[in-house]
Design a protein around this nucleic acid. Structure first.
Lengths: 232, 232
DNA sequence: CCAACAGTGGACCGATAAGTCCAATTCCCC
DNA sequence: GGGGAATTGGACTTATCGGTCCACTGTTGG
């Protein structure tokens, strides 16, 4: 679990035994799943209780209130979202690798038939205005995700593939934005097409910043030309 | 349920007099505002009632239930969102015009300090999984928005500015995705920077599809090079 | 001018939400 | 193996929500 540097201002939780940790984890996992499918407001603590074979008192034993549970859910979703892209994020050092990442994001979303969109995105949209702590947590999650993308772009620049003037941090932010928007439209349209289109266009944008001499400039991953890959 | 293409499957509403129409509009406007700020689930009918100087019975006089009110709110937000970009959307016929549109979107979001993100995006995220009719309405709204963008890109292609192989519909979808994702990240980060980055990268992507001979290829709107415009 | 109907006010209802409380039970460690 | 803390079960409280109901008011057209 990632811990904020400034020591989180959490309620002093009682010590957790092994059993306690398991139960707590079970609650968070079920709550995360439910909130991904039905939203935070659409998930009652009774729903969580029913879905975890626990009792009301356990929920309040491990979490001060619903907001604290939401906080834990945010943390978990950040972990899961990043973990789902782990291999691709770890080797983002070329345009081809970016396209592999693109394919991964599309595949993950395709598997669940675009239902729920991005778990983080949903939490962001629902909590941003009502729960400042949750907003900060989601913001930190996005930041972590963006940083992984930026690291890859920095690697590309270090290898001379990316032109010197390009700002990896800003580009990574933009690519993440394209992913989020694509995910949202995909969820609404129940089709991965918007996600593919948004990511492809963003990667086309990256292409503009490739060094002229780079082998990838011509688009070895996209034979038919930019943004023309057929959707699956 | 089989729905005829033309006739909406709405509850047969009573005839509306002028006074009735005004009241109804007042309710929808207030509900839209509240739902933009606090979400659909976070807005009770009592909130709407209090914010409109109406009574409970009026809400149910004009709307069958909360879902029907939400439906009306979606329609209104679609109108407002598109209307806010009217001038820029009407003359999207060049890269420079696309950048003017970009500036407009950024400015609108900046004015409200990124609060609430995109009204349509918020509704999409919150309603997609729980209210099929609302999801369809939001989807139609996005479609309308996308079509406006696509029309501009088609104009560019007709003028020879865009290369023949580029697909205006798909590009428009991607640009809309960039906007939505940028808006979401901007809302979460409380900064327009992600929105600017996402839109700039998308427009960089469009640049890839410009005809080689076009005057705009060199980037007359972006003197310092792609994606390097300073944020305001 | 008066009936019929759109429009309005607000009390009321049942369901369900978050959160409380306390007794019972299990576990860990001395 | 016993004591204290961690853990658990579930009834209970209180508040709020969507939704219903009915009496009343304004308006309008014949």
């Amino acid at each position: 679990m990632i811990v904020m540097p400034g020591a989180a201002d959490r309620v002093p939780e009682p010590a957790l035994t092994a059993r306690g940790r398991v139960t707590r984890e079970r609650i968070v996992a079920a709550a995360a799943q439910l909130m991904h499918e039905h939203g935070v407001a659409g998930t009652s603590l009774d729903d969580v209780r029913a879905g975890t074979d626990t009792s009301k008192s356990q929920l309040y034993h491990y979490f001060a209130d619903k907001s604290a549970l939401v906080q834990a859910v945010v943390g978990r979703q950040v972990q899961l979202v990043v973990a789902a892209q782990q291999p691709e994020l770890d080797e983002l050092d070329s345009l081809a690798a970016l396209y592999r990442w693109r394919d991964r994001v599309v595949a993950v979303n395709s598997e669940r038939a675009c239902v729920g969109g991005c778990p983080l995105g949903r939490l962001a949209s629902e909590l941003a205005e009502d729960d400042p702590r949750a907003r900060a947590a989601v913001k930190a999650g996005f930041e972590q995700w963006r940083e992984r993308l930026a690291a890859g772009l920095r690697a590309m620049r270090a290898r001379g593939e990316l032109v010197g003037g390009a700002d990896p941090d800003r580009l990574a932010l933009a690519v993440l934005g394209a992913a989020q928007g694509g995910l949202l439209l995909a969820q609404t349209a129940r089709s991965v097409a918007p996600l593919e289109a948004a990511l492809d266009l963003a990667l086309d944008g990256i292409r503009v910043h490739l060094s002229p001499g780079s082998a990838a400039v011509a688009g070895r991953h996209v034979p038919a030309g930019p943004s023309s890959r057929p959707g699956e």
